[in-house]
Simulated scan of single mutants.
Amino acid sequence: MKKILFLCLLIICTIALTLPVEGATATPIPPIKIHTGDWDSIKLTNAIAKYILEFGYGYEIRIHPTPEKTLSDDLSSGEVDVSFEVWKENHPATLERKINTGEIIDLGSIYSHASQYFIIPKWVAESHNISRLEQMKDYWYFFKDPENHHMGLFYPGLISWFVHDTNIEKLKAYGLTPFFNSITMPSGRSYEASFMKAAMNNQTIFGHYWSPSTVMGLDYWTILKEPELFEECSYNASSLNETSLLLCPFKDARVHKLVHPGLIGSAPDIISFIEKFSPGTKEISEILAYGYLHSIDDYDNLAQLYLKKYPDKWKNWIPSDKIEKISTSLNQNGEMVSK
């Protein structure tokens, strides 16, 4: 009888220990930290991913501004969990080495047709038969520096971008430095506004841009062909030193999604989504241009417009139960912006 009583007490105690204590909560899932940079396409792709991860998967998302020049260290250390838009050619070989050693995980390309290049207005190019970058030394006066009318003005990107340094080096290598001053802009939005203002007012401008982007959503530009500086130039960053990489002509860009290895353990259910996430260069450019022309500055708003306009794209990235949650949320939000 005593043995039976003892066993009963043991079972009761065991059950009591396994029951949740009133007021206790489960261990909170840490928020996912998404890297953002100061350019338009990454802000929109981040907003699209954020909406899907919050409303479809239930994660808390924090957008983490990180200078592009520290991104490699921030990803490998876990300061950020994921960057959805890393332009690998613009980074030194250190980034590729960290991917090769497993300090950063590469989950593949986000765009199949991303590009970066040097552009001028189409009407200038066509009226003077300008198609190659080296021709710009003969036409600098169409792009005069308002502070120095004896020089042209060149837009190389923001000083916080690796590509800014690349473009300054290219200007020297292509023999254009004696003809052009370079301008430093305070933000990605002001950089974008300079090109959009030129397009809206039929003005001239010369500089670096990329696709997808707000600017390249307009049919106003001619892309200038770069000279081949070195026959052996390659985009295999691990085999190049930091300097020679800068002198490679821009090719079709490798824009990839990179994550900190810890994300695979802490949020394994979203890895498949990140691998499949591919919003499209044309679609992103169209939404960005629409937002600019209609004075929509809220990227979360533009993300909802994207999700409503292109359901056939994002529904291929996630399971059916997540699709239902996101669709319900979009319907509840109503018409945020006109299509």
Rank of each mutant, 00 (worst) to 15 (best):
M200C: 04
D298M: 02
R62V: 15
D300M: 02
V255L: 01
R254E: 06
V86F: 08
S329N: 15
G334W: 06
I223V: 14
G188I: 06
R189F: 04
N236S: 08
N129D: 15
N181C: 05
A173K: 13
F6C: 08
K315T: 14
T27H: 01
A47R: 10
R97Y: 13
H164Q: 13
Q332S: 12
K43P: 00
L17M: 11
I110T: 12
L263K: 05
H91Y: 14
R189I: 12
L305K: 10
D74Q: 04
I168K: 09
S190T: 02
T101I: 04
G78Y: 02
G175C: 08
E324K: 14
H260Q: 05
Q332H: 06
N100K: 13
P65W: 05
P261M: 11
I29P: 00
E103R: 06
D252Y: 03
G175H: 04
F230E: 12
M196Y: 09
G217M: 10
S187Y: 03
K137H: 05
H208D: 04
P67M: 03
G334N: 09
W123A: 05
P249V: 08
E335V: 10
A24H: 09
N100C: 00
F250A: 11
K315F: 08
Y111A: 05
E232N: 11
C248S: 02
I15G: 00
S76A: 15
T281Q: 12
E242I: 10
K257F: 04
K197R: 14
H35T: 09
I63E: 14
K313W: 01
Y139N: 14
K172R: 12
F179E: 08
A16K: 10
S160P: 00
V124C: 01
Y141H: 15
M151R: 15
E226C: 05
H208C: 02
D81V: 04
I48A: 11
A303T: 07
S272Q: 10
H35I: 00
S83F: 01
M216D: 06
P121S: 06
K251G: 11
K251D: 02
Y220P: 07
E232I: 10
